[in-house]
Computed example of a mutant assay.
Amino acid sequence: MLKLFKVMLYIVLCAFSFDLHGQNVKYQTDKHVVNQQERMVYKQWDRKKFTPTRGFLSLNYQYWLTWGLHPNYPKTDLRPLSAGGPQSRRLLMVAAMKSTEEAYKLHADTLRNTALSEIANYAGVASQTDPLWQLYYKREFQDLLDFNQADLFEGLEPPVKDYLEQGGAADWYRQESQMLRERLEAARTTNLDRGSRIIAYHRMLGEYRKLLAIWETKRQRAALYLSIKDKVKELQENSTVAMAARGKSDVQIADDILSRAKL
Results as ranks from 00 to 15, higher is better:
3 K>I: 06
3 K>H: 02
4 L>Y: 11
4 L>F: 09
11 I>P: 07
13 L>E: 02
14 C>Y: 12
15 A>R: 04
15 A>K: 10
19 D>H: 14
20 L>V: 12
26 K>I: 14
28 Q>P: 10
28 Q>S: 07
43 K>D: 14
51 T>A: 13
51 T>H: 13
53 T>R: 14
53 T>M: 13
54 R>K: 15
54 R>G: 04
56 F>C: 11
57 L>F: 13
58 S>C: 12
59 L>T: 03
60 N>Q: 03
63 Y>S: 01
72 N>K: 15
77 D>L: 03
78 L>Y: 12
78 L>H: 09
80 P>M: 12
87 Q>K: 15
88 S>D: 02
88 S>P: 02
89 R>W: 05
90 R>Q: 04
95 A>Y: 08
100 T>N: 07
101 E>M: 13
103 A>F: 11
106 L>W: 05
106 L>A: 13
108 A>M: 01
111 L>R: 12
112 R>M: 08
116 L>E: 00
123 A>C: 06
123 A>R: 07
133 W>R: 08
146 D>H: 15
149 Q>P: 03
149 Q>I: 06
151 D>V: 11
155 G>K: 09
158 P>S: 08
163 Y>G: 07
163 Y>W: 12
163 Y>R: 08
165 E>I: 15
170 A>I: 03
171 D>R: 15
171 D>I: 02
175 Q>T: 02
187 A>F: 00
194 R>C: 02
199 I>R: 15
200 A>Q: 03
200 A>P: 03
203 R>D: 13
206 G>V: 10
207 E>M: 09
207 E>S: 03
211 L>C: 01
215 W>Y: 10
215 W>E: 08
232 V>E: 05
233 K>S: 13
233 K>H: 12
238 N>G: 10
238 N>Q: 12
239 S>V: 10
253 I>F: 01
256 D>L: 14
256 D>K: 08
257 I>D: 02
261 A>Y: 14
263 L>R: 11
